[in-house]
């Protein structure tokens, strides 16, 4: 009972700190939404019609928002807290490690959830994009696997970043190229870049989301092969995170 109360409080605390941090809130929430509007309005006419563009971009921006909230935001937040000595102070209290990490991950997942609802709602209302009612289970499972995996990867990269000054460079260098070649910001279905993207989890998250969003997709919208690859990356991330995570600033 005490543990559950502690989990609830820690998640609420981290969520509160997140919304009050203007930089984190902007890059995690406003930026993907801005990109969604611009992509739909500016790129729509040139990529075969507004409706078709929105059908591509709605699941793609959901993937983008999830990766930003779980990977980028989590990694940056943990590195900044570590550098500021916040983690070191918490380490000296009886707060269990896993409850601290739970609070961080829960915040990322809740933010990602809000983003998904906004993006899906916008696509449906503004462009009549299909809302995956029959594929709701596939969508939910994909979101959960994606959020868990990218959170684990965010923790893993935070352990490899030397300090807060290096965090934006390292985190963005690892994720922006993948977002560019993984059918998220731009559509690249074939060729060498698509093959490279196929190794990494972003492309598979985008594929799984667009499968759930395709009303004609078989298997209730599940893309099990893609989910397996995303999950495998998540497990690898968790292992790296457990090895490299540190409480103290690295100087």
């Amino acid at each position: 009972m005490r543990t559950i109360r502690l989990m609830f409080r820690q998640a609420r605390l981290e969520l509160r700190a997140f919304w009050r941090n203007p930089a984190a809130a902007f890059f995690t929430v406003v930026f993907p939404l801005l990109f969604m509007v611009v992509a739909n309005v500016a790129l729509g006419p040139s990529s075969g019609g507004q409706q078709q563009a929105a059908e591509f971009y709605t699941p793609a921006i959901i993937a983008f928002a999830l990766v930003t909230a779980c990977y980028t935001n989590l990694a940056m937040g943990v590195v900044v807290a570590r550098d500021a000595g916040i983690l070191k102070r918490l380490r000296g209290t009886p707060l269990p490690t896993w409850i601290y990490l739970w609070g961080r991950i829960a915040t990322s997942v809740i933010v990602a959830g809000v983003m998904v609802a906004i993006v899906a709602g916008y696509g449906a209302l503004a462009y009549g994009v299909y809302l995956p009612g029959e594929h709701l289970l596939a969508l939910a499972v994909t979101l959960v696997v994606g959020a868990a995996s990218f959170s684990a990867l965010g923790l893993a990269i935070s352990g490899l970043v030397p300090n807060a000054a290096a965090a934006p460079a390292v985190v963005n260098a690892t994720i922006l190229p993948l977002l560019l070649i993984s059918n998220v910001l731009v559509r690249i279905d074939d060729g060498a870049l698509a093959d490279i993207a196929g190794i990494f989890p972003v492309r598979h998250l985008a594929d799984a989301l667009s499968r759930a969003y395709d009303p004609a997709a078989p298997a209730q919208g599940f893309a099990l092969d893609s989910l397996a690859i995303v999950g495998a990356w998540g497990v690898a991330g968790l292992v790296i995170a457990l090895v490299t995570f540190s409480w103290q600033p690295r100087r």
């Binding site: 605390l13 700190a17 070191k88 102070r89």
Partner: peptide, 18 residues
């Protein structure tokens, strides 16, 4: 043990937005 001790670090930090 950590439940019974208190620590003021030289380089500890506190969440700035709370």
């Amino acid at each position: 043990l950590r439940d019974r001790i208190g620590i003021l670090l030289q380089d500890g930090g506190v969440e700035p937005y709370l």
